[in-house]
Structures are given as C-alpha cells and as structure tokens.
Design a protein around this nucleic acid. Structure first.
Length: 260
DNA sequence: ATGGTAGCCCTGCTA
C-alpha cells in the first residue's frame, strides 16, 4: 500500500500538476492539504477518471483537506466532532477515512504565524485538541496513519539553518512537544524509519528568495503511524521533482510504502 | 539590503 501526503497550495491552481503526479507516482491513498476550495468546487470527477474515490472537507478561500483512494474509502468524518471544541472552529483542517482497513487522517495544522501571537497560542491549543481527539477515538493498537502538513519541524536537522529560525514558529519547544506527545501516545515518524540518519531532508521550501534552489527548506510534512503500520514500512521518499518546473506547490509530496 | 513569491479575492491577507 502506497500512501502519500501533499500540501498542494490551491488545488484549482495545481490540478494539472496533481493529476500528472498521481499518474506518475501511483499512490493508493493520497492526502491533500490546502485545496482552497469549497466542496462544490472539488474536482472529484478528475480523480475518479484516474481511478480514485475521494472525500473533501472544504472551506473555500483557505485551508481544505482531502483524501483520495483507489483501495476503498469508508467511514469518512470531518473535523474533530462535536465533543471537541476546535480553537480554529470553521477552518477545514481534518478529514478521516478508512482505506484498505487503515484509518487515514489528513491534517493541515495551523501555521502559527508569529511567536508570540494569539495565532501561535491557538496552534498549540489545536495540537492539544488533536491529541485529545486521537486518544478518545483511536487506540495505539489500531492501524492508524495521521499524515499532512504539521507546520512543525520535529528536530533541528529538519531545517536548513537553526540560526535563521531562532525564535520563530515551526521549531519552538512547545510545538515540538506537541509532536512528541503524539509519538508518546503511540505514533511513529514513518519517514524516519527509512531515513534514521539522513539530515536535511525537506518537504517545504518558501517560494521567496529562491529558497528551493538554495536548499533552504524544512521537513514539516509528516507521516505518523501506529506500530502495526510503521513496522511494515518498506520505502519512503520526498519527491523533490514535484517541487520543480512550472507552477509548483511550495511543498513536495511525501510517499511511504507499507507492506500490509 | 529587515528583503522575497505565489495564491486568494478586492489590492491586503495568508503562507
């Protein structure tokens, strides 16, 4: 089972690139973030033509998450559910579905903007809600994968220069503690299973300053999996080629193969 | 040099 995550930064602007990439990479499941579309504008037909069922949780101008699957898509849910107060209520940032027996969650974690700021505080509160929701609705023995744009670089080696990020969002101790909390619950960084010792593997490069070609990136798109999934990871890749060429997203897709 | 670009929809906001 090949599962991938990609923040496409507008599915309307990126649809030709996404279609091309799906045909090339052949994921069984693709989680998308930042569709920036209302549900009625989601191009489900374009994906069904490629053999994928899809589920979209859209908002319109901002955010928006989706799951595409060619191995079934069941029990779709959006958001955290009524029992949990979302600090970013109204934002479309979470969608879940069961694909080939695996519970798949596509997440777009709030950016946080500045440290300190109200937005940063709410990002941390959102992470609290994510952890509480997972603990309440899943168990570590489940086949569970939470993947998407976490807007956190888990370690210093996941950014091109710690000096340049000193005091800014994505690398602070509380943000990293939120990732650690998910790991302590029972999720593993599946990408690191394949690349335990390779530093400076990035999934996001700012459009500005020629950051991509200068190698100034961050690894903020993560695949977090429970042991029953992570133990069977056979291969992983950040497809940097998808960040090149005409009208790329500022993120590259992250792919993980699981022998289930 | 306190910058830069891309995408959204009113040309400022978000990333």
């Amino acid at each position: 089972m090949r599962i991938a995550t990609w923040n496409v930064n507008s599915l309307k602007a990126r649809l030709p690139r996404v279609e091309e990439w799906i045909a090339y990479a052949q994921p069984d499941v693709l989680c998308i973030q930042e569709t920036k579309l209302a549900d009625k504008a989601f191009p489900a037909m374009a994906f069904s033509a490629l053999g994928y069922e899809s589920a979209h949780h859209g908002q319109g101008q901002w955010n928006g998450v989706a799951i595409l699957s060619r191995v079934g898509i069941e029990d779709v849910t959006s958001g955290f559910g009524d029992a949990f107060i979302d600090p970013y209520e109204g934002d479309a940032r979470v969608i879940s579905a069961t694909c080939n027996g695996v519970r798949v969650v596509s997440v777009y974690v709030p950016n946080g903007r500045e440290v300190p700021s109200e937005f940063y505080d709410r990002k941390l509160a959102w992470f609290d809600r994510l952890s509480e929701w997972i603990a309440a609705t899943c168990t570590p023995s489940d086949q569970l994968v939470i993947l998407g744009d976490f807007n956190v670089a888990p370690e210093d080696r996941d950014v091109w220069s710690m000096d340049s990020f000193e005091g800014s969002t994505h690398v602070t101790t509380p943000e990293r503690a939120a990732i650690t909390r998910l790991k302590e619950w029972g999720l593993e960084d599946a990408f690191r299973r394949i690349y335990p010792d390779i530093d400076h593997l990035y999934s996001y490069w700012d459009y500005r300053r020629g950051d991509f070609h200068q190698g100034r990136g961050m690894r903020i798109d993560l695949v977090l999996a429970t042991a029953s999934v992570a133990n069977h990871v056979t291969w992983a890749l950040v497809d940097r080629n998808a960040r090149k060429g005409t009208q790329p997203s500022d993120h590259a897709p992250v792919i993980v193969d699981i022998n289930l």
